[in-house]
Design a protein around this nucleic acid. Sequence first.
DNA 1: TGCTTTATTGAACGGTGTTCAATAGTTTTA
DNA 2: TAAAACTATTGAACACCGTTCAATAAAGCA
Lengths: 201, 201
Amino acid sequence: MTIAERKNKEKEEMSKRILDGARRVFLKNGYERTSMRNIADEINYSPGTLYFYFKDKGEIFNKLHQEGFRLLLAQSKVLDNVADPFERLKALGRAFIQFATENKDYYNLMFLVDEAASYQKDGLNIASEAINHLGATIKACQEKGHFKDMKTDYLTFMILSTLHGICALFCKDRTHNFKDHTTEDLMKTGYEYFILMLEKV
Amino acid sequence: MTIAERKNKEKEEMSKRILDGARRVFLKNGYERTSMRNIADEINYSPGTLYFYFKDKGEIFNKLHQEGFRLLLAQSKVLDNVADPFERLKALGRAFIQFATENKDYYNLMFLVDEAASYQKDGLNIASEAINHLGATIKACQEKGHFKDMKTDYLTFMILSTLHGICALFCKDRTHNFKDHTTEDLMKTGYEYFILMLEKV
DNA sequence: TGCTTTATTGAACGGTGTTCAATAGTTTTA
DNA sequence: TAAAACTATTGAACACCGTTCAATAAAGCA
């Protein structure tokens, strides 16, 4: 291993160390309460050091943002072996909502934080990969006769909107207007109603 | 007018002056870039003064939050004279989406900002009034034979989720994953597809 | 008139993201 | 090997943030 190679490896290791610290603080305290100084403290380095490895706070959180999508995609792909595409779609939606409830912080970062978007507008990214996965399943449904005369893209956007709407209302605590029902019940039954409708198209 | 009455009026006027300044800064610069000092500057007062009239930043933004819902409710009520309930529901959804696109900042405050929620969990508030208005229209649809065997609350939550999902993806710039279509097209056609489905239930 | 209440100020506190001169450590060059 | 160049790290500093509070001025009351 040349010196340059070792240097590269060390640099990578330090990046990882920072990211690991950032993730720990982030998952413990949430997005709002994760500062650069918190992260630096967590790994016992000076705040300035972080800026030697990452351009700014946004770049660090963009990594965690991608991580979230990798996690979601992994959980989605578990369902690839569900043979019937419509059953697969139903399960995908359930998995999406479950992901949001179990990983509220990641979900916030992935879909509800302002900064993240600017870092990945261009080029293929893990986020669109996750969405394409949903789109592919919907297309498979169409090939089996579902959703006749509908363009896959718009349909995907609509279905994603419903899923995201359910999760966003949950993540931002806007479910209390329906005070006769628990949040879980609302999300679960609300989604079932949506599926019921999808079945009839 | 007694002195106490005048004092009360003056206090009200000062509250209004602060709120007006806050609204101006907020609508010009967005939520993130509206600080207490900005608001104080706008109306040529010291930052400390704001705390004589409002408990904290959250209380000020809660007023604007309510204002947003009043605006939405007003625009919703314009459609009360659409006789057919299902047509009314369709128009309500369109109005909701239009409100979000035309008042992105208000929409953020109303549905996507963290703080707001804590200030209005208890008691009847303007937010639930706006949602009840949607619920009432949905109930009217059911009385005309639509959405058979569905509980109004869950149905309302589901429909609101879809509308909110569309608007939230727009507000947080998450529409670029569908890069073959403009954001407007996605929102419009996505909603039309949803309506198409609602029609068949 | 003096006494009390009310309204306003601006400095101060502890926090934020970020920059940068200084420094210590390491590698390359002569 | 000595000097020069480069690399990584520090922590103070900057300009901001929300919030508090002693001081102060103005207004109402006795």
